[in-house]
Each structure stands twice: as structure tokens, then as C-alpha cells.
Design a protein around this nucleic acid. Structure first.
Length: 94
DNA sequence: GTTGAGCGTT
């Protein structure tokens, strides 16, 4: 079916000390990360603990998803899932 | 050095 450009992944349970570079560095080896975003609070200027990663390929996105889901980072277990908004990786088999 | 369950800002 129609493939969406940019597979977005939702990363949660991240440590408050993580940065976009950390996410980018974690997802980069699994695929081409076109966008790495962390949600931060303007009040505390600290990451909310979750973020989003956009891949150039859906296949790479799901590969990184399985690879980094339930994985220990910074001594914490993180969870990776397909993002709600935008077009998720509905089609990985052509 | 604080973790916590979640879905973000064009």
C-alpha cells in the first residue's frame, strides 16, 4: 500500500539526562535518522522523558524499534513504539 | 544527578 515518508517512532521511559544526540546515536546504526526530537518542558528545561525519532525508511524504523525496544540505556529500560500521529509504518512488506 | 506514564512544536 501507500508508504508514508518518514517512519516516526515514539520513544518513552527515557532518562531525564538524555539528549537528541543520544537518541540519534542509538537509532542511527539501525537506519538513517532524518529527525530526532525530544520533548522538553520550558519551565524546568528538562526533557519530559520521551521523544520521537523519524527514519528515512520504514523497514529501518521497525528494525530499530525491535532493536531498541525494552533496552537498557543509561541504566534505565526504555520503550520504543510506532508513533500515533503521522503515518505509522503500516506497510513493511511490499 | 529524581523518577514517573506518556504521543511532540512549526
Amino acid at each position: 500500500m501507500a508508504k508514508r515518508l518518514g517512519a516516526q517512532l515514539f520513544v518513552s521511559r527515557l532518562s531525564t539526562y538524555i539528549t537528541t544526540k543520544e537518541l540519534e546515536g542509538l537509532f542511527s546504526p539501525f537506519g538513517v535518522v532524518t529527525e530526532a526530537r525530544l520533548i522538553t518542558d520550558p519551565k524546568t528545561q528538562r526533557p519530559k522523558g520521551f521523544g520521537f525519532v523519524t527514519f528515512q525508511s520504514e523497514v529501518e524504523a521497525q528494525k530499530a524499534l525491535k532493536a531498541l525496544n525494552c533496552r537498557m540505556v543509561n541504566g534505565r529500560l526504555i520503550f520504543v513504539e510506532v508513533a500515533k500521529s503521522e503515518g505509522p509504518t503500516q506497510d513493511a512488506s511490499s
